[in-house]
Amino acid sequence: MKVTVEPSIFSIVKYDADEIAGVAKEMLTLLGMKSTNLTIEVDETVAMSRVTTTMGDPVHVLAMSSAFENLRKPRTFSADNTKFSLGRGLLRVRDRLTGNFSDAPVDEDLSIVEAATWETYCVGRLSRLGLKVHKQRWHYNFRNRHGFNDATDKHFETIWESDDLTWSQLTEISRHAIA
């Protein structure tokens, strides 16, 4: 497990590269991904929460600065938010490594519906791993992408509670949720 963080010194946000690497290692351990190496690139010029991953060795993680930010105190670091943002990205990586997601588009090409569906699957699992998760936020995101009705809510629960879905199963549930 090797983790490098770029830049090594931050000038716009008050982050510490070693601290980020430490949190990343903690998450790799929690997710059973000790053999995965990471390069984490933080774009500190953008105040958004987006995290995209590119497969390879090392896996490349591109994080916009707000992904690691304490939103109550702008430009300062939050270990909890970092854990949560990396956790979502790394679970996608773990899914891809199983081979059950080989037909999934690369992160940058995921549609907004696909992204919301996969997020739901990831965050549900993170909550069961003990991370503090505000379920309603992800429920709202799922509804925004699939519709505001009881059927959508049922499909959300199915995905949220699942631990071993494939990409085709995931997209199938999403299709039913929209229909």
């Binding site: 716009i12 946000v13 774009d43 500190e44 010029t45 953008v46 105040a47 958004m48 987006r50 591109l62 916009m64 600065s65 109550r72 105190k73 702008p74 430009r75």
Partner: peptide, 21 residues
Amino acid sequence: NQATNAERMADTRGTSNTGVI
């Protein structure tokens, strides 16, 4: 937690149509 407008304006990070976004 509160911030003044001056603090907000000191944050030069973008959220708009630039670069990767």
